[in-house]
Simulated scan of single mutants.
Amino acid sequence: MPGTRLTATHLTRRVLTTVPPRGAVIVAVAGSEALRDRSESATFTAGPERRVHMTI
């Protein structure tokens, strides 16, 4: 998600927590290390390389 602002990350998290069933895993790849770090601070969990995930 190049150029994504932290506000968009929070909005995405809010939407994703209302759509998938409980227990679903959301996976994404950040466009940069900085975005991965910001995503991690927004309750995503960092994985290998620039991957992040969140369990609903």
Rank of each mutant, 00 (worst) to 15 (best):
G23E: 06
R14P: 03
I26F: 05
T17S: 13
S39L: 13
V27Q: 06
P21I: 02
S39F: 06
L11N: 08
H53Q: 06
V25N: 08
V25H: 11
A28I: 00
E33M: 05
M54W: 14
T12D: 07
A46I: 01
T12H: 10
G31Q: 10
A28G: 13
A30K: 01
F44P: 03
R38M: 09
T45S: 07
I26S: 02
M54P: 02
A42C: 15
S32P: 04
D37A: 13
L16E: 04
T43C: 10
R50T: 05
R51Y: 04
V27R: 09
E40F: 04
G47V: 03
A8N: 03
V29H: 08
S39N: 06
T55Q: 02
H10K: 15
G47H: 01
A24F: 07
T43H: 13
H53P: 00
P20Q: 07
H53R: 07
R14H: 15
V15K: 14
H10A: 15
T18L: 15
D37R: 05
I26M: 08
H10Q: 15
G47P: 00
E49F: 11
G23I: 05
D37S: 10
E33L: 11
A46L: 05
L11E: 10
T43M: 08
G23W: 01
R51L: 11
V27E: 09
A30N: 02
T18Q: 15
T18S: 15
A30P: 02
A42D: 12
T43N: 10
T45N: 07
T43K: 12
V29A: 08
R13L: 14
V27L: 09
S32K: 00
G47I: 01
R22G: 10
G23M: 01
V19N: 14
L11C: 14
R13M: 14
M54G: 07
V52W: 02
T9S: 06
R51P: 00
R51A: 08
M54Q: 09
L16S: 03
P48Q: 03
T18C: 12
L16F: 11
T55I: 06
L6Q: 03
V52N: 03
V15T: 12
T18P: 05
I26Y: 01
L11G: 11
E40T: 13
A24L: 03
P20H: 05
L35H: 00
M54D: 04
S39C: 13
A8G: 15
H10Y: 15
L35F: 01
L11I: 11
R14C: 12
A8W: 11
V27W: 09
T7H: 09
T17W: 06
T18Y: 09
R36P: 01
R50G: 02
P20W: 02
L35C: 00
V19T: 14
P48C: 06
E40K: 12
A42H: 10
R36Q: 05
T55R: 05
R50F: 04
L35V: 01
P21R: 14
F44C: 06
A8R: 08
V19W: 14
A8S: 12
L6A: 08
A28R: 07
R36D: 00
V19Y: 14
R14I: 06
T9M: 12
R36K: 09
A46W: 03
